[in-house]
Design a protein around this nucleic acid. Structure first.
Lengths: 188, 188
DNA sequence: ACGGGCGATGTCAGTTGCTGTCATCACCGT
DNA sequence: ACGGTGATGACAGCAACTGACATCGCCCGT
């Protein structure tokens, strides 16, 4: 194709994940990542806003998936059911890339700055879900609460799935966690 | 008293909040904060791990308050009721410092890095609450779900309270949001 | 009262994340 | 062939953060 090797972005993502895994996030310099990808530090920052963002390239696609799943859910579903169904299908997708998901999560779990970035991505997901619910006619604060509760369930289900040695079914864990949330909120 | 002016930490917090408010987080250097507090940059980093942390000095106290409130809640309260009561009392405390809370929140809302830090503090709160629930005999995933749902409710209630011109009652908003969550999770 | 330990602060040098600016180098259409 | 263009490199510079060492009074024991 071009003058340069193709897929510079993908090479950077791959190199970063490998190096973060081998030597840790803090002990990896951006220059090292770039060198491993056959590029320079300056080019790294043309593709990614900062050193952390390189691990979150898939966040945008995941958000679009969730939003369109909720937007296209049948009207017969209640808001929380629509959100649950969307998260289950996202879970199914994640499950197909379990190896990658585990490696990535190990890196993130080892570093607080990366956890911060992950949390704000999840918050962005919740915000997008709430917007979509509002477009479905759900009013506030129900829309925000449903979205935030859904993301909380997803977080916890994902953690459990990652922690399991015998690989369980993620969508199933998500569904069970929603049921558990329902039981828990009843209170008395 | 001492060789130095007392309360260096407090002076740094005050100077930082003022400068972040006046010129924005990005356009404020740590050296400027330190100078305003009559100290040096190096001393700033002895008190705070990084430039953001200076805004989160109260997080530790808040966490202790919540944990002890849940730990000391009467056994007659269900997990979610214990969490709700704890968050309401935290809300009452926040309400006493409304001016400060609003100013601080305006600064945080204007900057993504600060939002990240706030999110990880909230996640830490949720984690501490979940631990406390487990010590009360609640098992997982109910403990984690209750804690995360509680924090989600708190976030949304706080946002509403901040957005109001006619200052409503925060504990009341929190209680109402818990009720709304219950309604929303019922689903169908 | 005096000397030394000690805690809080200052000074300095260095690394790294990140940015602005300009140069370079093929490819592409005309 | 020629100039435009998009991706990359080279370089300089700022600010966040860290480690090492110096300084300065206060306090405690003798």
């Amino acid at each position: 194709m071009g003058r340069w090797e193709p897929n510079a972005r993908g090479r950077l993502e791959l190199a970063a994940l490998a190096l973060y895994g081998e030597r840790g996030f803090d002990d990896t310099t951006v220059a090292e990542i770039a060198a491993r990808a056959g590029l320079t530090e300056r080019t790294f920052f043309r593709y990614f806003a900062d050193k952390r963002e390189v691990l979150f390239g898939g966040a945008g696609a995941l958000q679009e998936l969730l939003v369109s799943a909720v937007a296209n859910a049948p009207d017969s579903l209640s808001p929380i059911e629509a959100v649950a169904a969307a998260l289950e299908s996202a879970g199914a997708l994640l499950q197909e890339r379990r190896e990658f998901a585990l490696q990535r999560q190990a890196v993130i779990s080892a570093n607080a700055e990366l956890q911060e970035r992950e949390l704000i991505k999840l918050a962005s997901l919740a915000s997008a879900l709430a917007d979509t619910l509002r477009r479905r006619g759900v009013s506030d604060p129900a829309a925000s609460l449903t979205a935030e509760a859904g993301i909380a369930v997803f977080k916890i289900a994902f953690e459990r799935w990652v922690g399991e040695t015998d690989q369980g079914d993620l969508p199933e864990i998500i569904r069970a966690s929603f049921d558990e949330l329902k039981a828990v909120t009843v209170g008395t």
